[in-house]
Computed example of a mutant assay.
Amino acid sequence: MINNVATWFELPVIDMPRAQGFYRSILNVSFKEEEMSGYQMAIFDAEEGSVSGMLILGEHYQPSANGAVVYFNGGADLSEPLAKVEASGGSVLMPKTPIHDGECGYFAMLLDSEGNRVGLYSQA
């Protein structure tokens, strides 16, 4: 078993259907929807043992462009999900940017449909 530093993340949302649509569009992901103690949750489907997280709507959760940044897997080429960001209700803050001249891959920063600052990473 891999000992990951991070084990879970929660992204606050204002509009759950809109947020799920955003992430479905740019990352081609699916969700398991749950509700618990007045919180609406959409858990990212992930392989057993991998780090994952959820979108969450409820008291004490507020989207932010100023806090910690979660980086999502941008797939084989970061250009593909980035091309869908604006049409899906988000905005690109930093375009595809090489890390050490591309030797360590590429990253980008964006605001999701809810106002959360998130990152994307890919090898190409």
Rank of each mutant, 00 (worst) to 15 (best):
S64Q: 13
V118M: 01
Y106H: 09
E34H: 15
M1F: 10
A87R: 13
A108S: 11
L82E: 06
R18S: 03
V92L: 00
P12N: 09
E114S: 04
N66I: 13
E33R: 15
T7H: 13
N3P: 09
Q20H: 09
G119R: 09
M36Y: 15
R117T: 13
E35H: 15
Y121N: 04
F44A: 00
Q123E: 11
A87G: 11
M1V: 01
E103V: 01
D77F: 07
G58L: 10
Q40F: 05
G119A: 05
Q123V: 08
H60P: 07
F31H: 10
F22R: 02
S52M: 02
A68R: 15
Y61V: 03
I14P: 01
A65K: 15
M36N: 15
V118G: 03
G67T: 14
V13R: 00
I2A: 08
H60C: 11
Y39D: 06
S88H: 04
H100L: 00
L93W: 02
I56V: 12
M16T: 02
S91Y: 02
E48R: 11
E80Q: 05
L120M: 11
W8L: 09
S30H: 12
G119V: 06
N3T: 13
D112W: 01
G75E: 02
A68P: 09
F72G: 04
L111M: 11
L57N: 12
A108T: 07
F9A: 03
Y71E: 07
V69M: 09
N66H: 15
N3L: 10
G102L: 00
S88I: 02
K84P: 04
G67N: 14
L111S: 02
V29R: 07
F44I: 01
N73P: 04
A6R: 13
L82Q: 03
E86Y: 10
M94V: 07
G105D: 08
G75M: 02
L120Y: 05
E59M: 12
K32P: 12
P12C: 05
G67Y: 14
V85W: 02
L57D: 07
L82V: 11
D112C: 01
Y71P: 03
Y61P: 10
N3I: 11
V85G: 00
P12M: 07
A83V: 10
L78Q: 07
G119C: 08
Y61W: 11
E33V: 15
A68E: 14
F72Y: 11
D15P: 00
R117S: 08
V51C: 14
G89E: 05
E86C: 04
S52D: 07
P17T: 04
N73K: 05
V5Q: 15
L93E: 04
H100M: 01
T7W: 14
G75K: 02
E33Y: 15
G53T: 03
K96I: 07
V69D: 10
G75C: 02
H100A: 00
D15C: 00
S64H: 14
L82W: 06
H100D: 06
G74P: 12
G21N: 10
N3Q: 11
L27Q: 05
V92T: 01
L78H: 09
L78E: 03
N28G: 02
E59T: 14
E35I: 15
G21Y: 10
E114G: 00
P98E: 06
